[in-house]
Each structure stands twice: as structure tokens, then as C-alpha cells.
Design a binder for these strands. Structure first.
Lengths: 218, 218, 218, 218
DNA sequence: AATGAATGAGATTTCATTCAT
DNA sequence: TATGAATGAAATCTCATTCAT
């Protein structure tokens, strides 16, 4: 019984530690996100991140291998988020142009609009930072593209149609992702047209749909 | 007569100097381009650029204010090149969907295919490098977008049609540029699919045309 | 009890750290002083200072913002020292010409003679080095002058006399400081007349006294 | 006759060249003076001097061995000027305290007031710049001191008196120069009290006279 | 686990000086 | 004589990373 009690206590404090650890990890990541988006990856020093997260520099290196690793993990988190919000919208969407439309709008309204810093990280700060980061960034794009691609394939399947050329579907997926990326960057990072975004998104998505119809050989 | 001869000589040597200056400027720029594309902007030191250009480090600073300025000038040159090759294709194109197609193909085949390093500079190395660079990069995009936009407007004009919403044309221009950007990056930088590029380009362009038709309200 | 012991240990090591920090700070300052006096401010590189202080260059920048800051802090320390030795002699002196004499001699014998490097720093190395340094140097002079001035005023007060013109006292204070400065510089830096200094100082001080009497309108 | 004429011509153009050379030399010196006083010796680049003098950098090195030499020559010119204006006033003065007074006032009113830049050069910019410059600066002071000293000796001689100690005269000369230096620097460089200078000078000079009387053992 | 002082390699930049024309 | 492009040594400073406590 005494044993059990002790175990209980140990395990309770172990749990608390575990929780604190996870929390600290998140605090650091979110501090880094804020600073990277505001002052740039290069422009942010490890010390600044530590300060904002209210930990010491040494602690940063307990949770992350190095600065690049911090960015990679940040990126992975953002990639997860994109899929959660958008990718799933694509994959869950009933295979129809309507489903496509809804998924596209979700990207703009549910991801870009509430998270402009994440946008800045993936599309600006993580670009051109060495191989690890580029690999992680590439993976985000590839998964996004794969989600769109699979939606396109299911769409054709359901319509009993096929695409004009062997590359059509893939190229379309890549194109759609590129479109979304630049539209978001242009209207949220370069020009703050937050208010117009819904209408802008609609146009972008409809443009997409037009392209798909064009390459769908019934 | 002796005077004239002397003047002649002076002017001749002055001309040669002028020529050498221009040449050296270009040599430095092209060395920087090569290295930035291969090893990244940060990964390339001024000394390496000097070595490749076969000049001293000091000379670099005689021609360029600092490293950032070197990148900005490089970027400006590339921007000029894009407009020359592509922008003009858009603006010269007869205002028709066919003209659009040809201009789009020109981007892929006449700019991206022969200049993958320039692609890497604009779309990767120049991203997230401080305000001067970002401004220059933004300008390249804005001009590209403006060229596409004006082509879209002339097209509608000629067809006697208009676009569905007040933002349609602009959003389409931004979308098209984003599409082209990522398609090129994906198939030339991330995956070397040089051989497939013509077919890929055709699909991308046709997708574009479909989108335009969709938003063109006759 | 274990807790208390632990706290004890922590606090003890914290104290030691604090002490080491202060010590290192002083070591760096004194290394810089030695080198600046011997080889000049410009002639001394940060690396040389680091070597002499047996720390790394990075450590220099941990303790001082930059090279100028190092000089400024050095200067501040010297200024403090001058006041300690001399300024206080002036202000503590009974308000009499005799007190003046003793304070003047203290400057030469207790500050200049034992610290020729400090002399070289304030009167040679810190001259003409940008605004921060000049400001710090100016402050040293102003305080020195203020000390002399206040002594002069107290002297007149006690004697029930006043000075000939509204500027007399201030100009005398400035003059005295200038005299002392150049006499010290001339006989310790330019010509090593260490042995004659006591006699030299006496003459200088008596000259001062003559000047004061002259401007004192009883 | 033709020979003579030719010689004539040659010699005339040689004279003109000589004149132009001298003029250019002065232009460069005066440009350097302006810039050194305004931006500091270190803060001024050879290129800036060349620009202001409207010659090329190469030309600078035709007239001066190097940057230090430029400062040394500048200094020599200023030293010459000081003696011309002040030194001579001391040496020409009838050997009397009145002569002393007039010479002292001349320093402030005829040298310092009209040439604050020269003041800044000798007393600030030329301080702590390596051995050549220090030697030149030392020479200026030594000559100034020597002039004052000889006036002091003639004064005692005429009065049939002597100075209290073997060092008195020399120390007084050094003191006087130091006083004048700091008074000028304080009231013209640190605080602009141009308007009060005459009154300030009078006080300083009278202070001097008091000191001399004190050490003069009749 | 956490701390933060210390490290030191490395990069950019400056600028006095040279020299071919 | 004059020019000004080219040089390159030298110096400052940054900051990611380490490690003793």
C-alpha cells in the first residue's frame, strides 16, 4: 500500500513533468514563430527566442538540436495544421467540383486568414535555408499536392471521365497549390487586403474550377 | 593633327576602360548568380564570389555597395530578363486565348528551361532576405502580374466581354503567376523533369485557359 | 536542513560567480588600459586585448558593447579615480590657499605619478575618438573643473572677498585644470622627469596660488 | 633671339606650373583641414579629401607621402601660424608684464577666435595618432613654450630679478601654454562662448600675470 | 533539467595605398 | 603630372553552440 501510494505519487509528478515539458516545448515553438514572422529567421537570435519564451538559451538546446531544427519542427507543425484544416477538407470533400470549391475556400479562410504568421514562415522565412528545412518545406508541399491530386482523381473517377494527358492531374494539383500560395502571399503579406479576401478567394477558386473542367475529358 | 590623334587615343582608351568596367560588372554578377544558385545566398561568401570572378574582394565593393546590393542588382537583371522574354510575349500577343497560350509556353521554354539558376535565385535565394531584396523581388512579381493583367483586360475588351467580379482579372493574373512559379520550381528545382517540361507546360497553360474562360462573362 | 544546505551551496556558488564576473570585467579593463597606453587605441586590436586578458574575443563583447564602449568604461573608471584622489582633496580641503596647495600636489603625486598610463589614456588616447568618448572625457573635465571652482568659491567666501569679474572663478578653474593637465603630460609623457616632479609640482601649484591672489578682490 | 624667346616661354610656363602646384597643394591642405575638423581624422577618407579638393586620389599621393604626412604638414602649417600670430607677439613684446598681457590676448583673439578649425586640429584631431604626428605636435608645443619661456627670462632680466627655483620659469611656460590650450578648447570647442571670449581671455591672462608675479623673486 | 557565461570561427566591410594608362 | 580602378590586409563584430555548475 505504501508502495502503491509512492508509485502513485511518483507517477503523478512524472505526469506533471511530462505536461510541463510539452508546454515548454510549445512555448518555445510559438515564441520562435512570432519572432521569425516578425523579424525574419536570420534576424532572430536564439537569445531573443529564449527571452520571449522565458527560458535560458541552454534550455533551447535541450528541446531542439539547433536553430535549424527549431525551424524544421515549427514547419512540421504548420504542415500538420495545413493538412488538418485544408488537406482534410480536400480529402473528405465529396468528389465534386463543389467539394473542391469548399476545400479551396477553407484554405484561405480557415488557414491563411487566422494565421498570417504561419503563412510568412512557410512561404517566406523557410525558403532558402539549407537542406533540412528545404526538405521539410518540400514535404509540406508534396502532401498538399498529393491531397489535391487524390481529390482530382476521385473526381474524375466519379464522373467517369479522365484527364487529357498523363500529366494533367498532377500538373493541375501543382498549379492549384501554386495559385493558392501566391494569392495568399500577395493579398495578405504584400498587400493587406484582409477584408477583400473572401471575394478574392472566391475568384481564385472559381478560376481553379474552370481549369479543372477544361482538362477533364468526359 | 597631333592634337586630334592624341584625343583619338585618349578617347579610345577611355572607351576601352568603359567596356572593361561593364564587363567586370557582368562577370561579378554572373559569378554571384552561379554561386548563389549552387550554394545559397548565405552559403556564399564575398571571398568566393571574388575568387570565381577573378577579382579582389575590394573590387566587389567598388562595384556594389554591399552583399545585399549585389543580390538586388542580380535580381533586377533577372527581372529585366523575365519581362524581355515573357512579359513582352504577353504584351505583344494578339489579344486571344491563343496568344495567352503562346506567352505561357514562352515562360517555361524560353526562360525557365535555359535559366534554372535564375529561377532558383528569384524563387528561392531572394526570399526572406531583408527589405531591399524583398522590395526588388516584389517589383518583379508586380510587373509580371501587371503584364498578365493587361493581357487579360485586352482579351476581354476584344471579346466584348467582361469578368465576373471587380477583382476577377487581378486575381487571375496573380493566380497565373503563382501557378507558373510553382510549376517551374516543382519540375525544375525539386524534381528534374526537364524532358517532360514541354508537356507539363502545355497542361499548365491549358488549365490557365480554362480558368480564364470560366471567369469571362460574355 | 538538506534544503538549507542546498540553498547555502547555491548562494555560495552564485556569489562566487558574481565575484568572478567582476574580476573578469576588471581584468579586461586593465588589459585594455595597458595596451591602449602602450600602443594606442587604434593600434590595439580587440584580439590583443582578449589575449592579454586571457579570454576569447567573444567574451570581450559579452562584457562590453563594442570597442568604443570599452574605452568609455575605462575612462569612467579613471574619472572616478581622479575625483577620488584629487577632487576629494579639493573639496575636503579647508578653504584656504594652503588647502589649494595640498590638493594640487595630490593631483601630481597621488594620481599622475603612480598612474602614468591613466594619464596617457585621458589626455591622449581618448582624444578625438567619436562622440561617446568625447562626452565621457568632457564629463571628467567638467567634474574636475567643478571641484576646483567650488573650492575657489568657498575660498572667496571664507575670506569675505569676491573675484574681479563674473567669469573670474570659472575661468580660473578651467585654467588650473589646463595647467595641471599639460604640466603632467609634458613632464611625464613627453619627457620623463619623474624625479623632478615634486619640485615641478610645487612651482606649478605656487603659480596657481599667485593667479588666485591676483583675481581675488578683497 | 628665337632661343631667348623660347626660353622665355618655357620659363613662363614653368612659373605658371610652379604656381599651380603650390595652389593645388594648399587646396588639398585646406580641404583636409575642413574635413578633419568637421568629421575627425579617422572619420575622413582620402577619397573625401580628394573630392573636396577636386582632384583624384592619386594626386593626393603626388603631393603627400600618405595620410599621416598630410596631417603632419597641416600641423606644421598651423604651428607656423601660431608662432606668426602669437609666438612673435611674445618675443617682440617689450619685456614687461604688459607685454605678456598683450601677447596672451593675441593668442585668444587673433588665433583661436578666427581659426577654431585649426584649434580642433591641434588640440583634438592630432592627438594620439602615431609617432610622426605626435612628434610634430610636440614640436609645436615646445616652440610655443620656448617663446613664452624666453619672454619670461627677458622679463626677469629686465626687472633685475630671478625666479624662485631653477624650474620655475620653465614650469610657468608649460603652465601658461596648458592654461591657454584648455581655456580655448573649453570655451570654443566644448561650449561656444565666442561672445564672452574677450572677457574670458582677460581673466585668463590676468591669472597668468598673478602667477608670474608670485614666482618672481625680486 | 536548467542555466548563462564563454567560446571562436567566420563573415562583412573599410580604406589607405599602388600603378598602369 | 594626373587619374581612378584595383588591391588586400586588417579589424570589428555576431551568434550558434557548448559545458561546467
Amino acid at each position: 500500500m505504501a508502495e502503491a501510494a509512492k508509485t502513485e505519487v511518483v507517477s503523478r509528478s512524472a505526469l506533471r513533468r511530462q505536461r510541463e515539458r510539452e508546454q515548454r516545448y510549445q512555448t518555445i515553438l510559438s515564441s520562435a514563430e512570432t519572432l521569425f514572422a516578425a523579424k525574419g529567421y536570420q534576424g532572430t537570435s536564439m537569445e531573443e527566442i529564449a527571452d520571449l519564451a522565458e527560458v535560458s538559451v541552454g534550455t533551447l538546446y535541450f528541446y531542439f538540436k539547433n536553430k535549424e531544427d527549431l525551424l524544421v519542427q515549427l514547419l512540421d507543425g504548420i504542415g500538420f495544421r495545413i493538412r488538418e484544416v485544408v488537406g482534410s477538407a480536400f480529402s473528405r470533400a465529396e468528389p465534386s467540383l463543389d467539394g473542391f470549391t469548399r476545400a479551396g475556400l477553407a484554405f484561405f479562410e480557415e488557414f491563411c486568414l487566422p494565421h498570417p504568421e504561419k503563412l510568412a514562415i512557410v512561404f517566406r522565412e523557410a525558403v532558402g535555408r539549407g537542406s533540412m528545412v528545404e526538405a521539410s518545406r518540400k514535404e509540406i508541399f508534396e502532401k498538399f499536392i498529393a491531397d489535391v491530386l487524390s481529390a482530382l482523381l476521385r473526381l474524375a473517377d466519379k464522373e467517369g471521365a479522365s484527364y487529357k494527358s498523363r500529366f494533367s492531374a498532377e500538373v493541375m494539383a501543382v498549379s492549384i497549390v501554386g495559385m493558392y500560395e501566391r494569392v495568399a502571399y500577395n493579398y495578405l503579406i504584400w498587400h493587406d487586403r484582409t477584408d477583400d479576401l473572401p471575394e478574392i478567394a472566391e475568384n481564385a477558386v472559381e478560376f481553379t474550377v474552370g481549369g479543372i473542367e477544361k482538362l477533364l475529358a468526359k
